[in-house]
Structures are given as C-alpha cells and as structure tokens.
Design a protein around this nucleic acid. Structure first.
Lengths: 341, 341
DNA sequence: GTGAAAGCGCTAACAT
DNA sequence: ATGTTAGCGCTTTCAC
C-alpha cells in the first residue's frame, strides 16, 4: 500500500479553503491557542473536523522555522549494547517527552570523529540542548554548542565546559572493592589484593575507580601493585586478551577481580570459562555496572548499579531550571544485596 | 560556559555580506554544488573560510522546507533493554548514515498509543521512511504513513500494508526445539516434551515459533499438550509467574524449556535459581534470542541468534531499490555451536 | 471574531 | 561566473 508518488501534502491553506476561512485561523485552532484569538467554537469545531478528514499533519520544518524555539533535545550515546546505556536512553526519551520536548538520540560508537559530526548535525536541526553521554571529547562538543547558541550537558563522563552529571565513581569503587575483599576473605580466610580490569586509564571514571580501588585496599593495609591495574579498554576482547597475557606471564592469578564494566565482564567471564584456569574455584568478582544475567552467573559476583534515574533527574533539573554552573554533580551508585537479586 | 541568551545565529546572508557576495553563491558553495554553478574557486575558498570563522551552521529546518526531499528516516523500536533491539538500532543508524540519511529513533515501550503518537510526530518531521520494529499495530502506522506520503516498512513483526522483514521463526524454532530435544535425550536417555514459555500468543512470531516447536515434537512422535505452551507475555516477571503457577499446580516440572526471548529467559533463570526446584539437575534450555551472559550461564543452554545484519540488509535493499511489493521476507536465524561460543 | 501580510533561512529557476 | 527573486508552510503582529 506504499504510495509511489507522494500525493501533495495537505497544508493549512488547503484546510482554510475547505473551511472557507483563513490560514491564520486554521493555524490558531490547530495550535490550541484559539481561545486567545476568540475564535468561535463553531469555526474551531469545523476546522478540527476537516483537518481530521484530510489527515492533515503539521509540517514541523515550517513551524520550527517560524518559531523561536525548537523544543528539540539531542543526546549522543556511545553504544546500545549494555543495560546501562539502554536504560539511559529509554529513561531520557520518556522524561523528554513528558516535558513536551522531542528527543533525538544518536549512537557514536566511541568514535571521536563521529561524535563531532553527530553534534554538528544535531545543531543543524536546531537542538536547544545537547547531552553528551560518555563522550571522548565533551568539551569540543560544548564549544560547538556554544558557537551555535545551544546549551550542553555532560552525562556519565565529565567535561570542563558544561555541567556534568556522573556517578560517584570513587566512593562506588571503594565500596565495591571493600565488598569484594570481604567476600574474598570469607572464602579464603585472608584478604589478598584484587585485580582491576577494564576501561581506559585515560578517562575520568576509570581513574576515579582505580583511586577507590586503591583506597579500599589501603583501608585494610594491603598494598596494590601497578601490575594489578589492567585498564586495557572497553571491548570484551581487550579484557580477555589482558587476562590471557597475565596467565601466560606465569604470575599467580588473582583470587578476585574488580571489573570495570559489564562489557569487560563479558570478556572476563568468557575467558574464565574457556581458559580452564580457575577450574575448581572461580575467582571472587565485582563489577562496576549491572546486568541481569551476569547477576545470575554465580553467587559471589557483586555488582554496583549506576543510578540512571537519579542521574537523569539531575540532568532534567538543570534543564528545567536552567542552572548555569558548570560544576560536577556526582550521583551515588546503588548496591544490590545478594538476597534481593 | 553555556550561553544564557543565544546570540543571533549566523545566516548565509551574514556570510554573503562579509564575503561581499550573494546568499545564493554562499548556499551553492556550502552545498558543494558550486562547480555546477561555475563559481570561481577563489570565491569558494573565501566563503568557506568565512563560514568557518563565523562558526556557521546550516539551518536544516529552513533547508528542508525548501527542498523536496528530507533524507530523514525514522525507526520505532519497542525497548532498548536487550541485545537484539540494541543491535538493530545501532546497525540501522550506521547503515542510514552511510547512505546520507538522517536516522531518528524512538522507543515506544510496547505501548500502542505511544506508537501512533510517535509515528505522527515523525511524520511531522517529514520522514521519508518509517520502520516499525516489533510494533503492536504496524498496519495502523502504515496507514498514517500513506496518508502523509511517507513509505513504511515492518521489521521483526510483520504487517499487511508494507513490506515486512522478519526472522524465519518457524524454521528457527523447529531447529532450536530439535536441538533442545536432542540435548535432553542425551542427558536423560529418552526425549520428553518441552515447555514453551514467553511471548504473546497473539503475535505472529510467537505463533510461528509455537508451530515450529510443535513440528519438532511431531517429527519424533512426541505429543505436545496445550498446557505446555505458556505464552504469558514478554516481561521477566510474567515468565517467572507462569513457572511459579505451574510448580504450584503440582504437575511435574518439564525437563527442558523453549524460552521465547532473552527477556523471558531473565525471569526463567531467576526463578530456577531462587525457587529451589531443579536444585540438583537444571533443566535443558533453549532460547530464541542471544545474550552473551546468558550464553555463559550453563553448558546446556542453546541459543538462536537472529540475523540482525541480514535483516537490515534486506530493509535497506527495499529502501535503496524502492521495491513496492508488500510481501514477507524471512531471514534465517543463526545457530551458534557450543564450541565456538 | 477574523483575515492580510510579512518573514523565518534556505534553494533553485531565472536573469544577467 | 554570479546576483535577483520567488517561494517552501507556518506563526504572528496588525488591521478591520
């Protein structure tokens, strides 16, 4: 039933002709601000009905061109392949819609070039706000936004040139580490240093989590060697490769691990299962992020869940109230206890 | 650094004034079709540079209003909470961009009202194509599109009024069932009927998969009782609830299950772990969909992976070549053998 | 209570 | 080779 040649679209002029009135009356009625224009409910009724019959659809491009405000809000997101970002996008969309904003999302696959290209495109579409989620170079995007008269916001990863809403990575990592160490002690009698694996050493979140990881070890007087920090990237294969290299080096394998994301955990679990090391006793694991299946993988796997709703509440708080400070807002992540998992 | 009052945006008229030329020259240069207008590379150079300096950004709304074609392509997707849809969206976006199209995606949470509202909004934005993914009422959306002069396409779930690209659910389910039965026989000596769980009995995919499930049982002469088909919905809690009810009924629990989606599998695995039935011997499981962590959950869990790339190749084949037939295109899903998982 | 008219920023046909 | 001009469909004064 797909029409080959689109029939000329109905405009408010067509409607005006049919209703024997003017385009401005039609526009006013269809926008709901007709009481302000004191249009007779008779005429309003008639116009609405005709519009219905003709299957009239507003042309946003024309409408937006004339208005001063677009009500379009953009978000850039690195990937759709994990629960964290999926839930950010889903929550963002519905919160935006609640406010009468039109959300447009685009996935930039952690590619810096794509990020700025996507930002530019969104600015062409007159976004009023642009949220950079987990962007590699958020300040670059903020600059573009400022130049184009749009406002920007950083989510998940902080920047210097716009308000940034992120998880409290340091405290979260410290508490997670504390729990892994406790589990490990319960199993082995004595606590031993853990392995930190996944993420990029250069990004703020990873750095903060490493700091929390070290602090928790410090708290109980266990030294952490640099060789125990393997921030080799986000892809599953990267984590797997690091572990393989570690095992090949002949060093003792750690009894427990702090895994920096579910995506890294994928590689870690795969390697543990396939490699055959740990065959009798799997390592104690903690993951900075949550996934429902990962949660079922074993009893000893501890997970922090980032507070997506809390973060987006903060995001929209800035948007709704137009806060202007470029500060850092840190949202505590959530710990789920084993019983209620 | 967020500007409070957006500075008036630079237009091509501003650039024309600065370059001491006309708006049309600027437009032509910035669009790349200036060799056609035989504009001197000198002028072109000058304009490009000034545009750069001024941080000029095209106003798409104005551009689109004037053009006849929008190059905007929309997609409606039910959820972002599993790998299947995540990968559909990610692949769709990049394939659209490769073609110079601007993808806009929106998540409708399996809500029929939201679906049509989202479709209407996208049509206002002049989408040329609208892909309904897993929509509850795709024909309604196709009608809206036809009325607005846009073309539509169904993905994942078929409709009658537009070309539909879906998985070959029948054959996939039959093969998956065959494999689960074989695993079950290997473990138990004799094959026993499986339980089908998850999905909506009313949707095409679930119906086809049930048909495949029955066919595979028929093939080896095992009868399937209606009480073994539990298509109680997509949410994890729905599946969990059905299982709890089944266990409470006192009937024997099945030795194996065909789970209709990863999202249902979430509920199934959770129940198996928490309920304590199956404590010594977990059931043989197969899932119509793939998830990396679920794949690690046990050795006996068989998974079909829907061929997302194949499906989207088919989608863009229709778009690129403007096929007009409203037929059903079925893409065989992919089986991953245990060794290579 | 309602209509006429201007103009948002851009593109393309038509001049020169 | 480049400028002038007429809209695209809508919103919004302003005039009646």
């Amino acid at each position: 039933m797909n029409q080959r040649r689109p029939p000329k679209k109905t405009t408010i002029y067509d409607l005006a002709a049919l209703a024997d009135t003017s385009a401005s009356a039609v526009s006013a009625v269809l926008n709901g601000n007709w009481k302000k224009r004191r249009i007779s409910s008779q005429l309003a009724e008639k116009i609405t009905q005709i519009a219905e019959e003709q299957g009239y659809a507003l042309n946003m491009q024309a409408s937006l061109l004339r208005r001063e405000t677009s009500k379009i809000i953009g978000m850039i997101v690195p990937k759709y392949d994990n629960r964290y970002f999926g839930s950010i996008v889903e929550t963002f969309e519905s919160m935006a819609r609640e406010r009468g904003l039109f959300p447009i999302i685009t996935c930039t696959r952690r590619d810096p070039e794509l990020e700025v290209e996507a930002a530019r495109t969104m600015l062409s579409y007159q976004v009023e706000w642009l949220i950079s989620t987990g962007a590699t170079d958020p300040d670059r995007i903020s600059d573009l936004c400022t130049a184009a008269g749009a406002r920007s916001l950083n989510l998940d990863l902080p920047g210097k040139k716009a308000p940034s809403i992120i998880s409290d990575n340091f405290s979260g990592a410290r508490e997670l580490t504390r729990r892994i160490l406790a589990n490990s002690k319960r199993r082995l009698g004595a606590a031993q240093p853990l392995l930190f694996i996944g993420g990029r050493g250069s990004d703020h979140n990873t750095a903060e989590r490493v700091r929390g990881f070290r602090a928790a070890h410090d708290d109980i007087g266990i030294p952490v060697d640099d060789s125990h920090i393997l921030a080799s990237g986000y892809a599953p294969e990267k984590a797997e490769h690091s572990l393989r290299a570690l095992a090949a080096s002949g060093d003792a394998l750690p009894v427990g691990m702090f895994v920096n994301s579910t995506i890294s955990l994928e590689g870690v679990m795969h390697w543990i299962k396939r490699s055959g090391h740990y065959k009798d006793r799997t390592p104690v694991i903690g993951c900075f992020d949550w996934d429902p299946f990962a949660a079922l993988l074993g009893d000893e796997i501890e997970m922090v869940r980032q507070d997506v709703q809390g973060m987006l509440d903060a995001v929209f708080n800035v948007i709704d109230h137009g806060t202007t400070a470029d500060g850092l807002i840190e949202i505590p992540p959530i710990f789920i206890d084993a019983e209620q998992r």
